[in-house]
Structure formats: structure tokens, C-alpha cells
Write a protein that binds this DNA or RNA. Structure first.
Lengths: 336, 336
DNA sequence: TCCCCGTAGGGAACCGGTTCCAGGACAAAG
DNA sequence: CTTTGTCCTGGAACCGGTTCCCTACGGGGA
């Protein structure tokens, strides 16, 4: 209710001085500064965000676009971003852009154009061409988390490396018939999938196991992994001895399916994932750890640096995943 | 870049007329309306949100406060809210207020006071007294999802009823030794927990099973339910024949723990949850369904009505949960 | 003594919209 | 022919801050 004019009046100074006293820029004597601060305190003065934005051109608000929020990875990234922004007093406006929905189209056409934010973090967005063009039109800094992009900064795990290490781990345990269970080739997860699939393939080829390369399609979710593995393992004459899940959710789904089919994990089947999902420990899943929460924090840092210095060159942060061995993997059982 | 002054100039009218033409209020001839619209289109005009907010007092933005986003229920509610807002062209600012953190204190002290929103949706917030007082200070409409509150509107499932139905289902199957696995008495889930616990107790008492009433403490999460059930079922001489989980995540955790202990579900142990979580189907969990996404949508509707009419009396929407029988529950095995 | 500079503070323009109010044109009613 | 009312439009105030520019004062150096 109380505006800066009220504060100024109460402190017996002009609006200009009140503004300077509160923001700390420009010359104001300590005495006046104190009076203004006290007046503001007494009136419970809170500056109007809209007016500040209008006058300064800074909204003190960061936009976040993501296709899902009800998935572990996205939710964790979101929390990391939120925490980092909170510490800096910045707001976070969320845009939930599910691929293929009219809502997504509206977000790109209308919402982002409103530019209610000083910068944008795009998480796993995988924008199509037209969307990419719309993104470039809003001239605000953008940081991508997951995926790749020539025109924005990127914060992500090294997907190729992670999948490669996961596969090598299985190979070192003597496995040869290893199946990669992952997303559809053209889903919105495309880039991540491709990178991880590529890492798996590279490891297989490098180990001379080219003939064993196999890829089972799966929705990228726990039920998806369950379904895909149920299909895969249902063919009892063609069962692999190990599975690389494109992510932990798929890997865990596969473990559940295996158990449902009376297979022992890791006795009959080794399973490795990528993520270190919150359920990984409970399922004793061997996995390659990434820490999405920290990716969120890093994305904020990069973005704020770009907002502060628009000339800053784009950065690309690829974090290495760490292998965490639990008990979903074991040496291959000697062939019959 | 282009402002309404540019649009007005290009259309050969005043700012006032341009504003009226675009917003549709007041008298503007069809001819000028057309010219203005075309000019706006050609210039790619997008009104500045800050300026609009300043002039109208409406931010076209809704605040959402929740303690978690990485939990199924919260994420679903959030998506429901987002969808409903998207359709109406409103933005959503997210505040992630984890209980007991300094971040939460900042949200209540600083962020909410900024009033960057026309209304607030509080999801499962369980505010402590001081927080409640701060909430009342921001004089904007507030709708609570989950929990109860005398001073805000509420949208929630009927928790007492849901837990009662769940318990009755087990009793009807012949179970008597039924344990309620739920949250800590004083956790942030307090109100929901209490209601559900009360529903369970009511059903037990009504069936004359007072002597069997038992409550096992559990973190409200899948691993939490796993841990609690592992403890509970570890005592092999005192095993119940059925479990009511305070929510599906806990119930599923309990199922996993039971299987790990070589118990058959539902042969040796029946389990029922509340939620109809996305994993419920996969685990064949019998549950009482609530649809958090719709609660989110409803919350938006109630909130917008209150924004439109500040005199509107507060509403309380309690949705009944529907029993979905899957195969985690079965008639009790005849006692040895 | 004069001038310059650092410090302090006020007036007013400005950010980009919305809206109140006044005024003109024109048609219908008196 | 005047009055009244409806439709259309422009000027200007306003929302609530920030910031530019100008004035004033006191002290130090030339």
C-alpha cells in the first residue's frame, strides 16, 4: 500500500533521495539513509515489482521452460534452480511445455514473447525448428539444461561418456549379450537418447561385440521400462544377460519386470542405469550418477553471468557421471 | 521493442485509441480498430507486462507455494494449475518452500510481500502460526489445496473418508490385524495424516476392532514406506495381515519391503493405498483414487472467481475418493 | 581570494501502458 | 432550430518507481 512517496514524506526527503537511500546508489548521507530506512520499515514499504521493472528494465525474474515437472530429473533440476534463485532474491516463472500440445504452442507464441523475465532456462526442451526461431527472437540470455544447442549455453551431463562407462562396467563383468533399453528415436528425448545410445554402441564396438548391439524401444519412464523389459525378456530363448537402461527409471522398471518373470537380479540379469534416481538405492541399482539439482544451480550461475554481461561468450558445461556400483550387477553366469 | 506509441503512430491514432482498440473496451470504430490491429501485427507489438501491471493493478500472474515439487502429488497438482492458467493466458510464479529452511522464511518474509501475483495457491503448505499471519497480510485471495484452513478456500480430497473406505475394504475381506503406516505426528503433512489416521481409526472402531488399531511411523515417501514396513514386518511374530498406507508411495514401499521379506502380496499381506499414483497400476495396487491434476484445475477456478469478486465467500471443495480394486488385496488367509 | 571538486539532495522526465475527461460529429427527438 | 444522446477520438493524468540534471554547500589547492 505504502509507496516510496509515502516513505519519502515520512522521512522528510524527496522521492529521489528515498530511492537512492534504499537502493544504495548515489550520494546519500548516513543520517538520511537511516531516517529513510526507518520510515520504510515503519510503513512496511515494499517496492512495486512492476514499477521497478518498468523503470529499470530488469524484472528480477527468471523463466524456466520444461516439458515435464512430474519426472524425477526435471523436478530435481527445478528445485536446484529455485534454490539458487531464492538465495539471490529472484523470482521464478514456470512454463510447462509438453511437446505437441496447444499449450506448448501458446507458450512459444505468446508467453515467452511477453518477456516477463531477464533470462530463460530451458530444461530438456528439444525445440523444433520453428520453436528455436521463436526462442532466438526473444533477445534474452538462454541456458539449456540437457541436450545441445549451438546458440545457447548448455549445462548437462556427458551422456555419451555415461552410457559408455555403464556398458564397459558390464563388459568388464564378462557380459556380452547386453541390450540398451531406451527412448524412441524421434521422441522429445531424442538428443539425450541418441548420445546415450551412441555411448553404448561405442563401448560395444570397442570391445568387439558389434554383433550383440541391440536396442529395445521404451517410453522414458518406470512403467515404460517395465513394459519394454517385459517384452524383451518374455522371449525366453533370446534373453540378454545384461541391460543398460537409458535412465534409472527405465532400469528400475526393467528390474521389476525381470523379478515378475522370476529372474534373479543380478543372478540371471544384470541391470545398470544412468541418473542415481532417488529410488536407485532402494532397488540397489548400479548406476552412473548425475546430480540434476546441481545442474540447476549451475544453470542459474551461467545465466546470471550472461545477464550481467550480454557480450559473454556462450559456455558449455559437461559434467562427468560417476559410477556407483550397487548390487544389480554381477559377473555373468558361466554360459550353459 | 515496439511500444504502443509506435503502434499508435503507425495507425495514425493516439495512444489512448490504440489502447482501446487492442483491449476492446470503450468506443472505437471498426475501421480504426482494424488499422490499429494491423499496425500492431506488423510491428510485432507485445504489451509490456510491467507497464500493464502498473497501470491496471493486475499482474496476470498467479503465485503457487508448495513445499515440494519432486513428489508425485505436488507435481501433478502443479501441472493441473499450469494447464488451467495457460488456457487463460496467465503466468505462474513458483515458490518452493521447504519446511524449516531459511529459503522458506525468505519466501514468507520477502517474496510473498512483493505481491507479484493477483492470487495465491498454497499446496500442502501447513503454515505455522507466524507464516499464517504473514499470509493474511498480503491481501490477495488465497486457495489451499490439501489441508484445511479457516481463512482460505480449500480444494482437497476427503481424507477421512478415503482412509475409512480403504480400511473398510480390508475389513470386508476378513482382515482384522490391520496396521496404518503413515507420517510422523508433527511432520508438515500433519493435517492430512491426522485425517487419514482418523478415518482408519473410525473404521476400525466401527467394526469393533479397537484392540487392533496400530500405527507405524513412516516418512511420506516410497523409501520411507519401505523402511517402515521392513521394520514392521521384520518382527515375524507380530505381523499384520494387512496394511493401509497413508498414500500410494508408502503403500508401494511397503509392498516392495514385503516381497523382499519373501512375503506374498496379497497372499500373506494385503496392501491398500490412497492416491492412485502413476505407479499404482504397475504394482497392481488397490487404492482410493484422487486426481490431483483436477484439484489443481479446480483451485485455479476458485481463485479466479475470488479475484474477480473479492467479496465472494470462501468455498470448500472436498472431493470423494473412489475405490479402485486391483490385486494387492485379497481375502485374509484363514488363521493357522 | 577564486575556483574546483566531492558530497548531498531536489525537481522533473521517463519507463509503457490505461483511463478519465472533454470535445466534436452526427442523428434523432422536441 | 435547438437540445439531447450516442459514438468516436485525443490530451493528459496516473500507476510507482529510477535516474538525469541541476543547485548548493563546504573545504582544499593555486
Amino acid at each position: 500500500m505504502a509507496g516510496i512517496a509515502d516513505v519519502a514524506a515520512r522521512a522528510g526527503v524527496s522521492k529521489a533521495t528515498a530511492s537512492r537511500a534504499l537502493s544504495g546508489v548515489g550520494y546519500v548521507s548516513e543520517a538520511t539513509k537511516g531516517r529513510v530506512r526507518r520510515a520504510a520499515e515503519e510503513l512496511g514499504y515494499v517496492p512495486s515489482a512492476g514499477a521497478v521493472g518498468l523503470a529499470t528494465g530488469r524484472t528480477q525474474n527468471i523463466g524456466v521452460v520444461m516439458p515435464y515437472v512430474n519426472r524425477w530429473f526435471f523436478a530435481e533440476v527445478l528445485e536446484g534452480i529455485q534454490q539458487a534463485l531464492l538465495e539471490r532474491g529472484l523470482d521464478l516463472t514456470l512454463y510447462d511445455a509438453k511437446p505437441g500440445t496447444t499449450g506448448r504452442a501458446r507458450i512459444f507464441n505468446d508467453f515467452l514473447a511477453r518477456k516477463r523475465f531477464d533470462g530463460l532456462i530451458a530444461v530438456g526442451l528439444e525445440p523444433v525448428d520453428r520453436e528455436l526461431e521463436l526462442l532466438t527472437r526473444i533477445d534474452r540470455p538462454i541456458v539449456s539444461v540437457v541436450g545441445s544447442s549451438e546458440l545457447t549455453s548448455v549445462v548437462a551431463v556427458d551422456d555419451d561418456y555415461a552410457a559408455c562407462r555403464a556398458t564397459e562396467h558390464l563388459i568388464a563383468l564378462g557380459h556380452r549379450d547386453i541390450v540398451f533399453v531406451g527412448g524412441a528415436p524421434r521422441s522429445h528425448w531424442a538428443h539425450v537418447d541418441q548420445q546415450r545410445l551412441a555411448g553404448y554402441q561405442r563401448a560395444m564396438h570397442d570391445a568387439g561385440l558389434s554383433e550383440y548391439v541391440r536396442h529395445a524401444h521404451s517410453e522414458v519412464s518406470l512403467p515404460g521400462g517395465y513394459g519394454a523389459a517385459a517384452d524383451l525378456l518374455g522371449d525366453t530363448r533370446n534373453r540378454p544377460t545384461a541391460i543398460v537402461g537409458v535412465c534409472d527409471e527405465v532400469a528400475i522398471g526393467a528390474m521389476i519386470a525381470a523379478r515378475r518373470l522370476a529372474m534373479q537380479v543380478p543372478g540371471d540379469l544384470s541391470v545398470v542405469g544412468i541418473d542415481d534416481h532417488e529410488f536407485a538405492e532402494m532397488f540397489a541399482l548400479t548406476t552412473l550418477q548425475q546430480i540434476p539439482r546441481e545442474q540447476g544451480r549451475s544453470a542459474v550461475e551461467v545465466l546470471l553471468a550472461e545477464i550481467a554481461d550480454p557480450e559473454r561468450e556462450r559456455t558449455e558445461l559437461r559434467m562427468p557421471a560417476r559410477l556407483i556400483v550397487r548390487s544389480s550387477t554381477a559377473p555373468v553366469r558361466s554360459p550353459a
